[in-house]
């Protein structure tokens, strides 16, 4: 038998502390607009959720002082930020921010993160799997989505994301080799 572990970076503690004071209302409004933009650009994402497209998902970046609630809402998602678990989610997916972002960008395998306990699922397991599979198929690139949102600042945003990825080791964008196909 063989065994090994994955090393995943964690969000800097000092930066996480700063998030404690950020106002949640504008963050929630931006996240909802952002998630609807992604839905528009990747319509297959919510289609693939199928019967789970009205579920509420709690996304818990365990190294940040906030949680996100993604209400799939039949393909018109509502994403809100919370200081603590609102308690009304159908499924909860918890892991470090780097693990969650790596999952979105296809840098990590969800099952492998789960086996190693870097990712924890609670509640409706089938809904959580459906979301994971739908996101994996959507081949999202969050940095590119933000850049597309940023008008004339698109190029600096892309450069900044690439630099931050190099320094931190966190997957902030889709791997280049995947994009060329």
């Amino acid at each position: 038998m063989q065994q090994s572990n994955i090393q995943i970076p964690t969000f800097p503690r000092s930066a996480a502390l700063a998030l404690r004071v950020l106002p949640l209302l504008p963050i929630s409004a931006s996240l909802t607009a952002f998630s609807r933009r992604i839905t528009k650009r990747s319509p297959g994402l919510f289609r693939r959720l199928g019967e789970y497209d009205r579920k509420r998902f709690i996304l818990d970046p365990t190294d940040l002082p906030i949680l996100l609630r993604l209400d799939a809402n039949g393909g018109i998602p509502i994403t809100t930020a919370h200081r603590k678990d609102p308690g009304d989610g159908d499924a909860k997916i918890a892991g470090s921010l780097a693990a969650l972002l790596g999952l979105v960008h296809g840098a990590y395998d969800g099952d492998a993160l789960f086996f190693s306990r870097d990712l924890v699922i609670e509640g409706d397991t089938a809904a959580a799997l459906a979301l994971r599979n739908a996101i994996d198929d959507a081949e999202l690139d969050l940095a590119e989505e933000i850049a597309a949102f940023s008008g004339p600042l698109a190029r600096p945003v892309r450069r900044l994301a690439a630099l931050a990825q190099r320094i931190t080791g966190v997957a902030l964008m889709r791997p280049e080799e995947a994009m060329s196909w």
Binding site: M1, Q2, Q3, S4, N5, I6, D109, D111, A112, F115, S116
Partner: peptide, 14 residues
């Protein structure tokens, strides 16, 4: 050399 152990269920292989 194998590099796939971490992808395995229970992180163990046979």
């Amino acid at each position: 050399e194998g590099m796939l152990a971490r992808l395995a269920e229970g992180q163990a292989s046979t």
